[in-house]
Amino acid sequence: MFLKSIKKVKVCLIYISTFISVFLITNFSFAAGDKISYPQKEWTFSGITGTFDRASQQRGLQVYKEVCSSCHGLRLLAYRNLKAIGYNDNEIKAFAAENTVNTIDDEGEVIERAARPSDKFVSPYPNQQSARAANGGAYPPDLSLIVKARSDGANYLHALLTGYVDAPSEKKVPDGMYYNKYYSGNLIGMPQPLYEDGVTYADGTKATPEQMAKDVTAFLAWASEPELEERKQTGIAVILFLLVLTLLSYFAMKKIWAPIKNRHV
């Protein structure tokens, strides 16, 4: 009996260790390319019960709008999506209407109209070439997926935004480049974007660079993974269901197999 239960434990261990080792290897391999590690911050949206902090997201939207959006687009997001971070229809309508989009009128002429909630966020440049031309040849990437498109994305973004320091004396920083301790190669085309009181938060929060970096990261993490909250909440229900189902099937299996097991012991 004792030996049998050891065998059962062994089976479980094989299952679990195989799974973990596969995960570890893959994790290992993808982390290996990155030489720089970023300060690990506490994010409300990490972990299996993570959710976004609405107030932080709204402040982040303000930072995006007043700072980032002069160079960076958010083309995969629609204005209507802002409902998910706590804005109502009228606020979204007004927010969208601050931008204009091109359309074609009944005479076939290209005209401008105010953006509607159904429109995607209007990018600051019409195309990549004009974006490069306006930024000394560097292309400010679209931020729609930025947190998913970088390894350890949220921490990376936060580190990058707060990583502007004086270059070490031996490092030559060419004109139009800036020194950032977390950017790969340390020379980045983006000037330091966040300064003390760079924005005046509508909710009165003190706008330190650290605060702004955290807020805009929370906002962009949501932009990258708008399904995150629903995904994790569904996940908990699904896993609980599966645990019950698996346990029930385990006991059913034991009951069905009992005569076979007893026969040849």
Binding site: R231, K232, G235, V238, L242, T246
Partner: peptide, 10 residues
């Protein structure tokens, strides 16, 4: 499925 769901959802 328990392991699979953990990966898919988390």
């Amino acid at each position: 499925l328990t392991f699979f769901a953990a990966a898919v959802f988390f």
